[in-house]
Design a binder for these strands. Structure first.
Length: 751
DNA sequence: GTAGGGTTAG
């Protein structure tokens, strides 16, 4: 219910406070207390209804007669009542003008606002939603006369203009009211109307008004409605990360006004997180908590989901501690964190959390989802047997495995190449009354394909298709098989399956098209690939930048530069912007083909196309020049990096060092090793391998021993290549002991 | 919460 102005006294001129005892023109005068008015915004309504029912309307002429013949002075209230009893607002306005002309005290500038209120009321009732043009006209007249609106007039006008979706007029009415007479509810109405307007000026006005409510000493304090208006506005937005609004919400919280609708608050946190603004969601939740507001579990859980998407494990830990401190953590909380840890290869931490959750004093009971996440996490890191143990453990926790549980395990066993166990699980699920679904089928087929059992997979599919009604396969089933046959270079079988797929009514999607195009391209079937690409476009799909990059890289590796260039041209035709990877891939291909002018042209193009060259770009070019033996060309690029203040990384130094080593310039190689250290770039295992190989080839053992010591001192772990270089060199120069010492240190480093 | 394609320098 609209509680605007509820319980507030009418704004009466002082001398009108003594009401006439009798009013012959208005039988309902006794019920004029505005606090009994239902609408709360338009007192006087019931009275006029009454008049209307009894058809007791007066003509303007009658009123004029009554006024001129009255013995007693006309009080402002009496004038208001008389004007109210005229059906038509313009007739009432004429009467008021007449009163002014005749010097009636009740129509003087100080009392006229009260009479005007009656006329506003009449205009507001002139049709279903109020005669808005008339109300606007009356408001302008009132302003012209220099009248101050009564509180009730302002409330009525604001209500009429907001329901009529004219926020600018609602604002005009609001501004015409003396600031000391404004109240929270009226502010809320205006703010809400302005925020619904698409006009940015209205939005700014609303925010400024809300800010006013927060300023010290302002008598209209924000309430939960104000708070709710800002929240729902944020939710209506496509882009919810409005700093000004979030700031206002925090400001309200500081004044002790908190969001009361948990659902709405949760929704804002979710929307902010999805828009990539988890930091803002974090700040909002914490500001409200710190101001003393209650933050319920769903809000924290929404924040946890956002943090998980951002892979922010450390802040997830903080949220969990905060929730624990208030005893708010529930099974969803555990579910989000366990899922996050399991997916980010922290399965041990996930298991620890599971232990905590299932400890006697936890009070939270695991459900099937928790088990599924843990089992999937274990399977994804190859600990499939442990996953199976967990399945057998579910019963003790009164949880039943479902299709997802079995699918995760079947996938796990497929990934470790144990197809037989995967099939056993498939049989077991039927026995335990858990229905296999299309994902179970596809997982098994994919597993068989990956393990080289492509025709077995196809047979399995055909067999299941016949025996099980729900195993007809879908686009993904076909896509898996098509990809497998293409991978096995059986293009005709892949094409056959593609046709069968369409014949069975499964339409290819973007992944299937990509699989076909990529497979056909790599098999050298360029024309087939091209017609597949046209079919794809016809169906409304487009290759994205990543897909183009993959195809271009494939052609590059096959030294088919024309095809790669053609795809690059196709991208711009299709309006797909090449990214840094596209350029790097092409530059690499042209460098490897020895076409340096083209590589440098591409470097220019990318800068012109607003694509900033990356370290990979410079590395590719430097590597290209080095391979060609063009050290000047390499130096030129290296210098241009420095000119652009792009700091070289270890890979760039490694390329240069490697090039100097193979050119026999071991001194230059060593000096670049020193230079990289000086520039704060740590040498890595590849740097050391490169230097050691160079020193070995030039038989400079003294320096090599020094380098080995540096490597140890910097705690740089050697790899198989290091061992290969040193075992092929040190024993031959009588340094077996040094090699043994190095190997022992290496083993110690791994333990 | 589960299935298909997966790009760039040493």
């Amino acid at each position: 219910m609209n509680t605007l102005l509820r319980g507030r006294p009418l704004f009466l001129p002082r001398d009108a406070s003594a009401l006439p005892a009798m009013d012959t023109f208005n039988p309902s005068i006794g019920s004029c207390d505005p606090s009994t008015s239902d609408s709360g915004i338009a007192p006087g309504a019931s009275r006029t209804d009454n008049l209307h029912e009894t058809d007791n309307w007066l003509q303007a002429e009658d009123v004029r007669k009554l006024l001129s013949s009255s013995d007693s002075p006309i009080t402002p209230y009496r004038l208001l009542e008389l004007l109210r009893s005229i059906r038509d607002s313009s007739a009432a306005l004429h009467v008021l003008d007449w009163c002014r002309r005749h010097g009636l005290e009740a129509a003087s500038a100080s009392h006229a606002p009260f009479a005007f209120q009656a006329i506003f009321e009449l205009a507001a009732r002139e049709n279903k939603y109020g005669n808005l043009p008339r109300l606007k006209d009356l408001l302008l007249r009132s302003i012209d006369h220099g009248y101050i609106l009564t509180q009730d007039s302002a409330a009525l006008l604001v209500r009429s203009f907001t329901t009529g979706h004219i926020p600018s007029d609602a604002l005009l009415a609001f501004r015409s009211l003396d600031p000391s007479l404004r109240c929270t509810n009226l502010c809320n109405h205006v703010i809400s109307a302005l925020l619904r307007s698409p006009d940015p000026k209205h939005q700014a006005e609303a925010l400024s008004l809300t800010r006013n409510m927060l300023s010290p000493g302002f008598h209209c304090l924000p309430d939960t409605t104000t708070c709710s208006i800002i929240f729902s506005t944020l939710l209506r937005r496509n882009q919810p990360a409005d700093d000004q609004m979030l700031h206002l919400i925090v400001g309200m919280a500081v004044l002790g006004c908190f969001p009361t609708d948990t659902y709405q608050f949760t929704k804002v946190v979710i929307t902010l997180s999805r828009a990539g603004c988890v930091d803002k969601a974090w700040d909002l939740v914490h500001a409200i908590k710190n101001a003393g507001g209650t933050v319920h579990a769903p809000i924290w859980n929404a924040l946890l989901t956002g943090l998980s998407k951002n892979r922010d494990t450390s802040r997830m830990k903080l949220v969990f501690s905060e929730m624990e401190a208030s005893g708010l953590e529930n099974v969803v909380t555990y579910g989000i964190i366990i899922n996050h840890l399991a997916k980010s290869h922290n399965i041990n931490l996930a298991l620890q959390l599971f232990d905590k959750m299932t400890s006697p004093n936890s009070g939270v009971i695991p459900d099937t989802v928790i088990f599924n996440n843990l089992i999937d996490g274990l399977c994804k890191v190859g600990r499939t047997r442990e996953g199976l143990c967990l399945l057998n453990h579910m019963k003790t926790h009164h949880c039943d495995p479902n299709t997802i549980t079995f699918n995760a395990l079947i996938d796990g066993f497929c990934k470790i190449g144990d197809i037989d166990t995967a099939h056993e699980l498939n049989d077991r699920m039927s026995k335990e009354g858990v229905l296999p679904n299309i994902i179970t089928l596809n997982t098994l087929i994919s597993g068989m394909c990956r393990n080289g059992r492509v025709s077995g997979a196809l047979n399995f599919f055909h067999e299941k298709k016949l025996t099980r009604e729900n195993a007809k396969g879908n686009a993904i089933t076909y896509c898996i098989l098509i990809g497998a046959f293409l991978h096995a270079n059986n293009v005709s079988k892949a094409m056959e399956l593609f046709d069968e797929m369409i014949e069975k009514g499964h339409f290819p999607d973007s992944v299937t098209y990509f699989t076909m195009i990529s497979g056909l391209s790599m098999a050298g079937r360029i024309d087939d690939a091209r017609s597949m690409a046209s079919a794809m476009r016809r169906d409304g799909f487009q290759l994205d930048t990543k897909s183009y990059n993959i195809l271009i890289a494939g052609f590059g590796k096959k030294k088919k530069l024309n095809e790669a260039a053609q795809l690059f041209g196709e991208m711009s035709e299709a309006g797909i912007k090449p990214d840094v990877v596209t350029y790097n891939t092409l530059i690499d291909a042209y460098c490897k083909a020895g076409d340096f002018p083209m590589a440098e042209t591409l470097l220019t193009n990318m800068t012109d196309g607003n694509c900033k060259p990356s370290l990979v770009t410079y590395g590719t070019l430097i590597q290209g020049f080095c391979k060609k033996g063009d050290h000047d060309g390499a130096k030129k690029i290296f210098q241009s990096m420095k000119d652009l203040h792009v700091e070289p990384n270890a890979v760039i130094y490694n390329i240069l060092i490697g090039s100097f080593c193979s050119g026999g310039e071991i001194g230059m190689a060593i000096s670049h090793l020193d230079q990289m250290r000086k520039n704060g770039v740590s040498p890595n295992v590849i740097t050391y391998n490169t230097i050691l190989k160079g020193l070995c080839e030039n038989n400079i053992s003294g320096k090599a021993f020094e380098v080995i010591d540096q490597m140890k001192a910097e705690r740089c772990s050697p790899n198989a290549r290091t061992v290969e270089i040193l075992t092929g060199w040190l024993p031959a120069i009588g340094e077996t002991k040094r090699l043994r010492c190095f190997m022992e240190c290496q083993n110690a480093a791994f333990s």
